[in-house]
Amino acid sequence: MTLDDILAGLFPNGSKIDISGAMIAGSAILPGAGPIHVLGITQGQPLGVDEAVALARRVLEIVKSGDRAPILFLVDSSSQRMSRRDELLGLSEYLSHLAKALLLAEAEGHCTVALLYGGSAAGAFIATALAAGTLVGLPGAHPAVMDLPSMARVTKLPIDVLKAKAEATPVFAPGLENMVQTGGIHLVLDERAPLAPQLAAILKRPQGLDERSRLGAERGGRRKAAEIADRVVALAACAPQGTQHG
């Protein structure tokens, strides 16, 4: 679906959303849910220091407004911007700052939902879609850590071999279904049904719980993560203090 189709489907009563360059910012009324902030990165653009700091500024303005309205973050990006300038200026801090702003918004009472409708990869994916309380996708979305040709180069495996391995496991290859199976994407919206009620239902989910590793275990794409993390929590809580002997 195009961005225009998505916005028309979500906000049939209209919206005030500004799309300038790679950036989306504005607000709308979601039928059945009320006012909602809309942000995002579009046109498959990379996320660099300039875009990340502008998006974070908008998120912090929303937090400071105190309205506690939900935030929808639309994502169609490439990866982090790969450039000497961005790394010279400390890109990692800018991407983390955007992720932190989204996590802060959620902690301060804004329901945060990311909608992946195009591509996203690596650091851009982590700083946007994966920093929301709930991530949903649309059919045709294509998340990736690294594309298969690049992966073939790094792992020194022929691409046909990689493709064959990707049939057997969702754990490494790019794609929407793999990200669903590993628990990163909560669900894929039905593009043939009205979008607004589907998003309104997502907004009613409880926030503040990271269910991704549990979902990954249930769906079979990431069987160990939840169990390992839970075991560490239990060991840290139970291991008696002061029993170390030198």
Binding site: I126, A131, T182, G184, G221
Partner: peptide
């Protein structure tokens, strides 16, 4: 991220970042 388990590694990064912020808060 370890490319041989890239999706699991990427999600681990996101889970860790959230857990860091929650611990700090």
């Amino acid at each position: 991220v370890r490319l041989q388990e890239a999706n699991a590694g990427e999600l681990a990064i996101a889970e860790i970042m959230r857990a860091v912020i929650e611990a700090r808060r």
